[in-house]
């Protein structure tokens, strides 16, 4: 059986590589992208190809198109894949935006243990 597929958007290459490795180590398949635009395009391509994308993990602040905006675009075009946000500065506004999208929000610095638990939780919903 195929392992659950996760899309990961993070503009920092080092953190992106680390998170992908950390998730792959515990058995997930991970598609990584560096920008919000690429996230939107990749999710659309995956879903169009019939890949069972189970979760989207995205950084909130990315150049040009942030995670919240990208998620909003995907929701508006009818994609209902569960969302998990990561942010270094999760103020009330950011939290309310994430809650509006029905998503979990993790604060940076990230603990890999917390991330893995959050992913398990998000996939179980």
């Amino acid at each position: 059986m195929l392992q659950p597929l996760i899309a990961l958007a993070e503009d920092d290459p080092a953190l992106r590589a680390l998170l992908a490795t950390a998730l792959e180590t515990v058995g997930y398949r991970v598609v990584t992208v560096a920008t919000g635009e690429l996230l939107v395009a990749t999710v659309r391509t995956l879903l169009a190809a019939g890949d069972p994308l189970r979760l989207i993990i995205t950084d909130v602040r990315m150049p040009t198109l942030g995670g919240l905006e990208a998620a909003r675009i995907l929701r508006e075009t009818g994609h209902a894949t569960p969302l998990l946000f990561m942010t270094a500065y999760g103020d009330a506004w950011t939290r309310s935006q994430a809650a509006d999208l029905g998503a979990l929000l993790l604060d940076k610095p990230l603990s890999l243990t917390v991330l893995r638990h959050a992913v398990t939780l998000a996939l179980a919903i």
Binding site: A14, L18, A88, K108
Partner: peptide
Amino acid sequence: AGIAHELGTPLSIVGGHAQM
């Protein structure tokens, strides 16, 4: 916010690698 943003990512990386 600036400090949190600037330090959040490298701290995540350092912590992540250390945990692994």
